[in-house]
Design a binder for these strands. Structure first.
Length: 592
DNA sequence: TACGGTAGCTCG
DNA sequence: GTACGAGCTACCGTAC
């Protein structure tokens, strides 16, 4: 392995100058981490930056030895203008930004590439796993967790740090070739294509998105200090009070499903249904049928209060002081968290915040939030994806789609549809996206919309739905047909994201959900491309929703750019169906 | 005591 | 014939 360890500032400057002739660089970093379980992007320090070239020369820069201030401007110029190949670059980019104010934007991420190529199947995407798979390279990761703040690093540590970059150099061509051999409906253009010669549009979108996701995490969601702390106090004492009352009165642990079920069956004589595994179910939706009973009311209230309290604690645990009046929480997003390319969010999860808590998320002083979401995006996608003419026409005419469906299956005029009928149609429309069956339609309608129908009625509605929306009927039939012939099939989003599916419900849901996630990521990319110097930053993404924090006087301008970005992304993927969205400027996340 | 599976609940 | 995806907490049985 051809590597050089650099501790001298003058030498460092020389090497950086030489690297300027490369079209792109391979990059990895080593970080001095105080607590491995709790990496702090704001206070932990970069020790090493390793840069490699295509002809396998590797330079290891020791930032604890080199004069950081002297190399910062040249390094910034280098890394912000070159293509960067790395593994899970969100991690490195966050440290480069906080430690050195360096923000690379032209990236090829080998972890993301591996995830795209796995088509939702393989969940092993560490550098170790990918190196083995793509280049039959055995990496030893023992040194990853070694002490990186030694005065003098050992030769083994330096070699280890260089070897990771060698691995990147080895796996890059293989990943790129595989991405380029995937057939797709679009072809990528733009900078990712120009630098790395990657034609695959999904990877172009994902790679462009990587640095922006890093930025979203660094910015974080602002929360009102006063409101979080006071709600936490209030709910905490309420919880203690009702928990103690409950135990005193009934002598049952409300959080033991087993004990609760036994109690409900033996003492209250409730007929509980069974779960899949054969135990008794005491889910909220089951107990809601017995709301006239006081113990049931109390049990449901305890569950709800506990849930609320847990979420508040979770937020408080990750909250960091920002200004005098606001905390910020910096979630950790998995860019490809689901087979469909949807993201997931953790520590804390900012994608399952209830409306009760959203009001705590307030823009900091002098700033506003912009809250934007796509309207009925999955139905629009489904109609475009399947060429369902009746639904496409309704969307084009600007119809309320749930009302429209209700009028189709009831035979009543559009104007005369009642709220109840609209709700039922909404359940059917949603069911369509997930691969509906009459039985689950019946359950879904009552559980989520409180609409009671018989199985016979459910069957009728189901039949009528597919009778009027012939495009959907054909789609479902052809998927069923394919699955009869093959155990596993590949389904493809409108951008070209490929996913393996063996269940019917997956095969119909994945391409729809995936197109939605393609669209959201594209919208984010456009927003950053268009926003220029505006003091406006995306701070959370929730599948079809974008939240921006913006300096007050620039709010209207940023809102327009966000709308333009969402529309542009929508129009690339949906050629026939119009895209609609709701956008508002607000002080907190619960305002509309 | 550590771990994995299950149940339950939240969001899109 | 099957409703889809995610994360977090707590319980509970099993392995050590």
């Amino acid at each position: 392995m051809n590597y050089e360890y650099i501790t001298d500032t003058t030498k460092a400057l020389e090497y950086i100058k030489k690297l300027e002739n490369e079209p792109f660089l391979f990059l990895d970093t080593e970080i001095v981490v105080k607590d491995f379980k709790n990496i702090d992007f704001f206070s932990d320090k970069i020790r090493l930056i390793q840069l490699g070239t295509q002809n396998k020369k590797i330079f290891v820069f020791d930032l604890f030895k080199i004069d950081k201030e002297k190399i910062k401007p040249v390094l910034k110029n280098l890394l912000e203008n070159k293509g960067i190949v790395g593994h899970n670059l969100k991690f490195d980019i966050k440290f480069l930004k906080t430690n050195l104010d360096i923000f690379p934007t032209l990236v090829f991420d080998t972890m993301i590439a591996s995830q795209i190529l796995s088509e939702g199947e393989n969940d092993k995407h560490s550098l170790l796993a990918v190196s083995k798979r793509e280049a039959n390279l055995e990496l030893d990761k023992t040194y990853q967790s070694s002490t990186w703040n030694l005065e003098n690093l050992t030769e083994e540590q330096i070699k280890y740090s260089a070897k990771d970059v060698l691995a990147l150099i080895e796996i890059f061509p293989s990943l790129r070739d595989k991405l380029n051999s995937v057939e797709t409906p679009h072809k990528a253009t733009g900078k990712v294509y120009e630098i790395f010669k990657v034609k695959n549009p999904v990877s172009a979108v994902e790679f462009t998105f990587v640095p922006y996701l890093a930025l979203i995490e660094l910015k974080g969601m602002p929360i009102s200090k006063e409101k979080l702390d006071s709600l936490l106090n209030e709910i905490s004492s309420k919880y203690q009070r009702i928990y103690i009352d409950f135990i005193r009165q009934y002598g049952v642990d409300p959080f033991s499903p087993q004990k609760v079920s036994n109690w409900l069956i033996n003492k209250l004589n409730l007929p509980l249904p069974k779960t899949e595994k054969g135990s008794y179910s005491s889910q909220d939706k089951v107990l809601k049928k017995f709301l006239d009973k006081k113990p049931i009311q109390k049990l449901l209230e305890i569950r709800h209060t506990k849930k609320l309290l847990d979420k508040l604690k979770e937020l408080k645990q990750y909250a960091k002081e920002d200004t005098k009046t606001t905390y910020r929480v910096h979630s950790d997003y998995r860019q490809i968290g689901a087979p469909t390319g949807r993201m997931s969010s953790s520590r804390p999860n900012l994608q399952n915040i209830t409306y009760e808590i959203r009001k705590l998320f307030e823009a900091k002083e002098g700033y506003k939030l912009i809250i934007a979401d796509y309207s009925q995006i999955e139905l629009r996608i489904a109609s475009e994806y399947t060429n369902e003419e009746t639904m496409i026409k309704a969307f084009k005419e600007g119809k309320d789609l749930h009302k429209f469906t209700a009028s189709l299956i009831t035979g009543k005029p559009y104007e005369e549809i009642t709220k109840e009928e609209r709700k039922l149609a909404k359940a059917i429309n949603f069911g369509l996206i997930y691969g509906i069956s009459p039985k689950s339609l019946m359950e879904y309608a009552v559980n989520n919309y409180g609409v009671e129908i018989t199985l016979k009625e459910a069957k009728e509605f189901h039949e009528k739905f597919f009778q009027y929306y012939k495009g959907f009927k054909q789609w479902h039939d052809s998927v069923k047909e394919k699955l009869k012939k093959q155990h596993k099939i590949i389904v493809v989003s409108l951008l070209g994201r490929r996913m393996k599916a063996s269940r019917f419900t997956d095969a119909v849901n994945y391409p729809i959900q995936a197109t939605g996630s393609d669209m959201l990521k594209m919208a984010v990319n456009f927003f950053y491309k268009l926003k220029g110097n505006l003091d406006a930053y995306i701070i959370n993404l929730v599948h079809d929703e974008i939240i921006v924090e913006v300096e007050e006087s620039q709010a209207e301008q940023a809102k327009k750019i966000l709308e333009e970005s969402m529309l542009k992304a929508g129009k690339i993927l949906l050629k026939q169906v119009p895209v609609e969205y709701e956008v508002s400027i607000a002080n907190n996340w619960s305002e509309k």
